[in-house]
Amino acid sequence: SEFQINEQVLASWSDSRFYPAKVTAVNKDGTYTVKFYDGVVQTVKHIHVKA
């Protein structure tokens, strides 16, 4: 599913667990740039983002 900029989502971290994050960019290659609550910004594949 498509997510929008500033949408609150759950994004997987390197430990494969999902954490609350905010979408900061929707990228043309189908990835999302997300910002976790601790301030870390990461680009993740769409399969690693869920509502």
Rank of each mutant, 00 (worst) to 15 (best):
F3L: 06
A11G: 03
Y37I: 11
F36G: 01
V40R: 12
V9A: 01
S12T: 07
K35R: 11
V40A: 12
T33P: 01
T31S: 10
I47T: 14
A21Y: 04
Q42K: 15
I5L: 10
F18G: 02
F3A: 04
W13G: 14
V34Y: 01
T31H: 04
Q42N: 08
V40N: 12
V41T: 10
I47Y: 10
A25C: 09
A21K: 01
G30S: 01
V49K: 15
E7W: 06
K28P: 14
T43I: 12
Q42R: 15
F18H: 05
K22D: 03
G30K: 02
T33Q: 11
F18V: 04
Y37M: 12
S1V: 14
I47W: 10
K45R: 10
D29N: 06
G39P: 02
T24S: 06
Q4K: 11
N6C: 12
D38P: 04
E7M: 10
W13D: 09
N27M: 05
Q8L: 14
F18K: 00
T31Y: 08
E2F: 10
T31M: 03
L10K: 01
E7G: 03
D38A: 04
E7R: 00
G30C: 07
H46E: 13
T33V: 12
A51N: 08
Y19Q: 07
V41W: 05
V23F: 00
D29R: 00
V49M: 11
K28N: 13
D38F: 15
E2H: 13
T43Y: 04
V40T: 15
E2Q: 13
F18P: 01
Y37L: 13
T31K: 01
V41P: 04
K28S: 14
K35M: 15
H48N: 14
G39T: 05
Y37D: 11
R17A: 13
S16Q: 10
V34F: 00
A51T: 10
F3D: 02
A25R: 08
Q4T: 10
K22Q: 12
K22A: 08
V34E: 05
V26G: 00
A11E: 03
S1K: 14
Q8C: 15
Y32L: 11
S12F: 12
Y37S: 11
Y19S: 06
E7C: 11
H48K: 13
K50C: 10
I47Q: 13
H48D: 13
F36Q: 00
Q8W: 15
N27C: 07
A21S: 01
Y32T: 05
V26A: 05
K28E: 13
E2A: 11
T33N: 09
K35G: 02
P20I: 09
T43V: 12
Y32R: 01
V9C: 07
T24I: 15
Y19K: 09
Y32N: 02
P20T: 02
F18N: 03
Q4S: 10
S1P: 14
L10R: 01
K22E: 11
D15S: 02
A21N: 01
Q42E: 09
Y32H: 03
S1I: 13
A25S: 10
V49Y: 05
A51I: 09
G30A: 00
N6F: 09
D29K: 00
D15R: 00
K45Y: 09
V23S: 01
L10C: 15
G30N: 04
T43M: 06
K45S: 14
E7V: 05
Y19M: 11
P20E: 05
F18E: 03
I5K: 07
R17Q: 13
K22N: 06
Q42L: 12
V49T: 06
D29G: 02
S14V: 12
V40M: 13
A21E: 04
H46K: 15
A21R: 00
N27P: 00
Q42Y: 08
E2G: 12
V26T: 04
S1F: 14
F3G: 04
P20C: 13
V44L: 09
S1R: 15
I47H: 14
S16A: 11
F36W: 07
T31C: 06
T43S: 06
Y32S: 03
A25L: 06
V49Q: 07
A21I: 06
P20N: 04
N27D: 03
D38V: 06
R17H: 14
K35A: 09
S1Y: 14
S14T: 12
S12H: 11
V34M: 01
Q8N: 13
D29I: 00
K22P: 01
V23T: 02
K45V: 09
Y37P: 08
V23K: 01
P20V: 05
Y37H: 10
K22R: 12
K28R: 10
K50I: 14
G39M: 05
N6W: 09
V44W: 06
D38Y: 08
P20K: 03
N6P: 05
G30L: 03
V26F: 04
D29Y: 00
K45A: 12
E7P: 00
K35H: 09
T24G: 01
A21L: 03
G30V: 02
P20S: 01
S16H: 12
N6H: 09
W13H: 13
H48I: 10
G30W: 05
F36N: 00
P20R: 03
F36A: 01
T24L: 15
V23Y: 00
N27T: 04
K50W: 08
V40K: 12
D38S: 10
F18Q: 01
W13T: 11
V49L: 14
D15M: 00
N6Q: 05
G39A: 04
N27R: 05
V23A: 01
K45L: 13
G30M: 04
F36L: 02
H46I: 12
